[in-house]
């Protein structure tokens, strides 16, 4: 562990400020609590909000997992995991089940999370109304007055223009019937998983907002009676592990149109293959590992 910096990098006063914001976020699910985000040694937009939240909730005994696009080995996930190994001295793991704190960008793990786990999201634009109304002063009023008509109009315009709601990720949700919330740019496939046993914390560093979902909080994806919400994914099975229920990445194999679909959650895919599952283009796990 690097002794030049405080445990988990942030100074204690910053952590206290963030911890207070987290508690208020938990007390008012879906409401974006302003916090004085600090400059971190990684760029804004690269997970500084998530990193600050993780740094404020980690204990020395924790095991941490970091994923980006569902994968542990994407470059930014590697970089953030290294940061916490160095500054907090915590153990890290790629196994979802072994992690106490999971920091994620753009995915919810396939495996159900437990009550003793914490999921921390990196959020680029926390305001679900931002693309309809660029002014913070206006959107804050709209949340205060529970004035969400603009959002429904937007979704309905989608339907009349395209025959479907054209939002496929960062799909807005309503929390406990009160606040409309941005679930971060997870695919809408993940939206139903937002009701879970673990604590979910959302950190937006550049935009200086923290929000939270306590376990089992009611989270409803916005929709219409005649156009109900649908959690969709590619109509394939994973070509490596054969899973038919996981969210898939499409991989281009050659310039002749060849492609395959693989689980975006690398740990999920790995453990399925280790358990003997083989997809259409996969080989048994032992051969691959050799």
């Amino acid at each position: 562990m690097n002794q030049e910096y405080n445990f988990a990098y942030l100074d204690e006063q910053t952590k206290r400020m963030i911890r207070r914001a987290i508690l208020k976020g938990l007390a008012i699910p879906g409401y974006q609590v302003p916090f004085a985000s600090r400059e971190m040694p990684m760029p804004y937009g690269w997970g500084t909000g998530g990193v600050q939240v993780s740094a404020s909730v980690l204990t020395p005994e924790d095991t941490m997992k970091v994923i980006d696009q569902g994968a542990d080995d994407t470059t930014n996930a590697v970089s953030i995991r290294k940061f916490f190994e160095k500054t907090a001295g915590v153990a890290t793991s790629e196994e979802t089940a072994k992690a106490d704190v999971i920091q994620t960008r753009h995915r919810i793990p396939e495996e159900d999370l437990r009550e003793d786990q914490i999921l921390v999201y990196q959020v680029p634009i926390p305001e679900p109304l931002r693309f309809l109304e660029p002014r913070e002063t206006e959107t804050r009023k709209m949340h205060a007055l529970e004035e969400y008509g603009l959002m429904h109009v937007k979704l309905y315009e989608d339907i009349s223009k395209n025959g479907a709601i054209s939002t496929s990720y960062a799909y807005p949700v309503k929390v406990e019937g009160r606040y409309v919330m941005d679930p971060s740019p997870i695919p809408k496939f993940d939206n139903p998983k937002l009701e879970m046993a673990a604590i979910q914390l959302f950190g937006a560093g550049r935009e200086q907002r923290i929000y939270a979902l306590p376990p089992y909080t009611k989270v409803v994806s916005l929709d219409f009676e005649d156009y109900p919400f649908e959690a969709s994914k590619a109509d394939h099975a994973c070509d490596l592990c054969g899973s038919e229920t996981s969210y898939l990445d499409e991989v281009i194999m050659d310039d002749a149109g060849g492609r395959m679909f693989v689980c975006s959650d690398t740990d999920f895919c790995h453990s399925r293959r280790a358990a003997g599952h083989v997809g259409a283009q996969g080989v048994p796990f032992e051969e691959d590992a050799a």
């Binding site: 760029p43 804004y44 937009g45 690269w46 500084t48 980006d68 696009q69 569902g70 994407t74 470059t75 930014n76 960008r105 753009h106 995915r107 680029p124 479907a164 054209s166 496929s168 990720y169 960062a170 740019p185 997870i186 695919p187 809408k188 496939f189 550049r206 969709s232 994914k233 590619a234 969210y247 898939l248 990445d249 499409e250 975006s264």
Partner: peptide
């Protein structure tokens, strides 16, 4: 703030892009 957010669009966005692709 500006450069961080601008440059973050070069980070992987496979997942969001995949969902758009499917749609």
């Amino acid at each position: 703030q500006a450069t961080g957010f601008l440059e973050h669009i070069k980070l992987p966005h496979y997942v969001d892009f995949q969902s758009e692709l499917e749609l």
